[in-house]
Simulated scan of single mutants.
Amino acid sequence: MKLTASPFRLSALLLGLLGIGGAVAGCQSAGGEVAVGRQSIAVAVPAPVPVAVDSLVPTPLATLPGIPPVLRAAVSELRRRLGPEAAALRPEVLERACVGYLALRQAGRLSRSGILAVADMDLPSSEPRLWVLDLRAGQVLHRSPVAHGQGSGGLRARHFSNTIKSACTSLGFYRTQDTYRGKHGLSRRLRGLDAGQNDNALRRYVVLHSADYVSQAYLAQHGQAGNSRGCPALPPDQYRAIIGALGEGGCLYLSGPGLESKWLDVAGAAQRLVARGWE
C-alpha cells in the first residue's frame, strides 16, 4: 500500500527532523538560515521588537483651576523678573510653588518670608533642577543640581514614597527646620507638610546635606547625579549657601508627577497676596 503525504505534512516532517519547530535547535546564522550538513534552509526570523527609550520630556502639568486674575498676574510678573536664570523652571511648577507658599504663609505654617526653594523632580538629575528664589526682589539666589532617592529611579525619578526605608523621594511642601552637624557635615532638617505624602520626613531623616555624587565633577563623569536614600542632597560647593538662604521656617517644594496637596489652595493664596504681597 503506497502512502502519500501532503506538501504541508512533508514540510512539517522535515522541520521536525531538522530540529526546527517550537524550539529551534542548531546555530542560526545572521542571514536567518539553519545550517544542516552542507545545506542550509532559510528560516523566517521575526523582526526585533523596538526597545522603548526613556523620554526626558517631563510629565505635562495643567494650570491650576480657579486662580484669581490678581494671583495669576503676580506669578507671571514674578517669572518675568526672575529672567533667564529661571527659564527652565516650568511655569506650571512655579505657579504651584507660589500658591503653596502663600497658602502656607496664610495658615501660619512658615516663619521665613519671601524665600522659596523649588525643585522640579520630574526633570532628569543631570539638570540643575533646584531654584532658590527671593520672591520680593524677583531674583534667583541659587540654582543647582539636586539628588533624588535611589528607590525613585536612575536618571529620572519615577516612583515616590513616604514609607520609611523606601529610599524614595517624597513629593510635596516642606518647612525647613534647624541645622545640625551629622555624617554629611552641616545639614538642615525638613518637616513634611503634606499628610500621607511627605510627613514621615523627620522620621526618615530626610534632610538637606552635601554629597559628592551631586558635584560638577561627578555629573561630568557620569552624566547624571548619584542617588541618595531619599534626601534632596546638594553639591558640596553650594550646599552651605543654599542651607543658609533657606533659613529655619522656610519653604521647600518638591514637584513631581501625581502630586496632590491641600496647600494648593488658590483662595487662601490670593487672600494672602492681596493682604501682604510676597511677605
Rank of each mutant, 00 (worst) to 15 (best):
V70M: 08
L71P: 00
L71S: 03
R72W: 09
R72D: 14
R72Q: 07
R72F: 08
R72G: 08
R72I: 06
R72C: 07
A74S: 04
V75M: 04
V75H: 03
V75N: 02
V75E: 03
V75L: 02
S76G: 10
S76N: 12
S76T: 14
E77R: 14
L78V: 04
R79P: 04
R79G: 07
R79H: 07
R79Q: 07
R80I: 07
R80H: 09
R81N: 08
L82E: 07
L82R: 09
L82Y: 13
G83F: 10
G83V: 12
P84W: 10
P84H: 09
E85W: 12
E85V: 12
A86M: 15
A86P: 15
A86V: 10
A86D: 14
A87K: 15
A88Q: 12
A88K: 14
L89H: 10
L89E: 14
L89D: 13
L89T: 12
L89F: 12
R90H: 15
R90A: 14
R90F: 15
P91W: 11
P91K: 05
E92Q: 15
E92L: 14
E92I: 10
V93N: 12
L94G: 08
L94F: 13
L94P: 09
L94C: 14
E95C: 10
R96Y: 15
R96N: 10
R96I: 13
A97L: 08
A97Y: 07
A97T: 08
C98F: 05
C98N: 03
C98L: 07
C98P: 04
V99E: 00
V99I: 08
V99A: 01
G100C: 00
G100K: 00
G100L: 00
Y101E: 00
Y101R: 00
Y101P: 00
L102F: 04
L102V: 02
L102H: 01
L102K: 01
L102E: 00
A103K: 03
A103H: 02
A103P: 03
A103N: 03
L104W: 01
L104S: 00
L104C: 04
R105G: 01
Q106S: 09
Q106D: 11
A107F: 02
A107D: 07
A107V: 03
A107W: 02
G108R: 14
G108C: 11
G108K: 11
R109K: 12
R109I: 06
R109S: 09
L110N: 02
S111Y: 05
S111N: 08
R112F: 06
R112Y: 06
R112Q: 09
